[in-house]
Design a protein around this nucleic acid. Structure first.
Lengths: 163, 163
DNA sequence: GTCCGACCGTAGGATGTCCTACGATACTGC
DNA sequence: GCAGTATCGTAGGACATCCTACGGTCGGAC
C-alpha cells in the first residue's frame, strides 16, 4: 500500500506524549478527509445538473415533504445549516426555477419554499445520477457501509444531532 | 432518542425503489454531517489562537517535518488541498509570523514555507487545546474510534488517497 | 544549444459557509 | 390594549475552497 499521512500524524502524536488523543486526532482528520473525497465525487455527479450537494439536499427535502413546501426555518433546522446558507441556496434554486418562495398564510414572518414541477423532475434525475455514480458504491463492502453509518449515528447522537 | 433526518432520508430511498443505494446515501450524508460537527468543535478550540483547522494542519505539518520547512507543492500534496488553498493559508500564517517563505536553493520555481519559533510554540499550545477539548473525546468509545478510523482508511484507500 | 512541454506558485473570480446586525412580525405578561 | 421579548428571513462582511489562467523556471528531445 501507499503512504498514509494520517497514520504518520498518529505516530507523531504518540511520539510527542499525546497517546490518549492520538486515536481521536486520527478519527477527526479521517472524517475531514473522507468528507473532502465524498464531497468532490458528489459535486462532480451533480455538476451536469448545475446543483451542489447543499442545493440538492434542500431540493430533495422539499420533494420528500408532504406538501412539497416547508418554512425556511424548518429547512435550516432539518439540514442543520445556518439560516443565511438556506437563503443563499434558496436564491439559486429559485433563480433556476426549481423552487418558489411563497408567503406563509398565517404567519407573515415566515417564508415557505415550494418545489416546482421542474424542480421535482430535476431532483429525481439528479438522484439517479448520484445513486449510480456515488451512493451505489462508496468504496466499502456493504457490511462496512452499515457499520460506518452506525458509528456516525453514535457520534452524532453524542453531539446532540438527533433531534 | 430524537429524530434522525438521515434515517428518515434512508426510509425515503427504500420507499422510492433505490434500496441498493440507500446505505450509501446514508453513509455519505453521515460523513458530511459528522465533518460539520467536528469542524465546528475544532474551529472553536482553535479560535483563541487565531487559527483554522486548515492553517493548523499546515503549521503542524511543518513542525513535524525534518527540517521544519517544505515546498508549497509538497504541502498541497500531503494535505490533499488545492495549491491556491495552500497559498491562502500560507499568506495568513506568514502575516501572523508563524511561518516564513523562503526560496528553494536549487529550484527557483519552488517556494519553501518554514515554521518560525513562534509558529512552533503556538502549534504546540494549540495542539494541547485540541487534545483536551476535541481529540481526547470525540463522543465514541475507544474501540469505536479505532473502528471508525479503520473503516475510513479503507474508504480513503479505495479512493486512491494513500500515496 | 534550443525549443517546447511540464511543473510551480499566485492572481482573479465563483461558490458555500458562518457571523453579526437589522427590520418586520408574532407572542406573552401585565 | 400595550410593552418587552422572541422569532423569522435577509443584507453585508469575513473566510476557505475550488477553478481557470498566467508568468517564471526547469528539463528533455532534437
Amino acid at each position: 500500500m501507499g503512504f498514509d499521512p494520517i497514520a504518520e500524524a498518529r505516530r507523531q502524536w504518540v511520539a510527542h506524549d499525546w497517546p490518549e488523543a492520538a486515536d481521536g486526532m486520527a478519527a477527526v482528520t479521517s472524517v475531514m478527509r473522507a468528507q473532502q473525497i465524498l464531497q468532490s465525487r458528489v459535486d462532480a455527479a451533480l455538476r451536469p445538473f448545475d446543483l451542489t450537494f447543499a442545493r440538492y439536499e434542500l431540493l430533495m427535502l422539499l420533494v420528500f415533504s408532504r406538501a412539497g413546501r416547508l418554512p425556511m426555518s424548518k429547512v435550516s433546522h432539518r439540514l442543520q445549516v445556518h439560516p443565511t446558507s438556506v437563503t443563499n441556496a434558496a436564491d439559486r434554486l429559485e433563480q433556476a426555477g426549481l423552487i418558489r418562495r411563497e408567503p406563509h398564510p398565517d404567519d407573515r414572518r415566515v417564508t415557505l419554499v415550494a418545489v416546482t414541477p421542474a424542480g421535482r423532475r430535476l431532483g429525481l434525475r439528479a438522484t439517479t445520477a448520484l445513486n449510480d455514480t456515488v451512493f451505489g458504491d462508496v468504496g466499502l463492502r456493504p457490511g462496512q457501509v452499515r457499520s460506518l453509518v452506525d458509528l456516525l449515528v453514535d457520534l452524532r447522537a453524542s453531539a446532540g444531532d438527533l433531534g
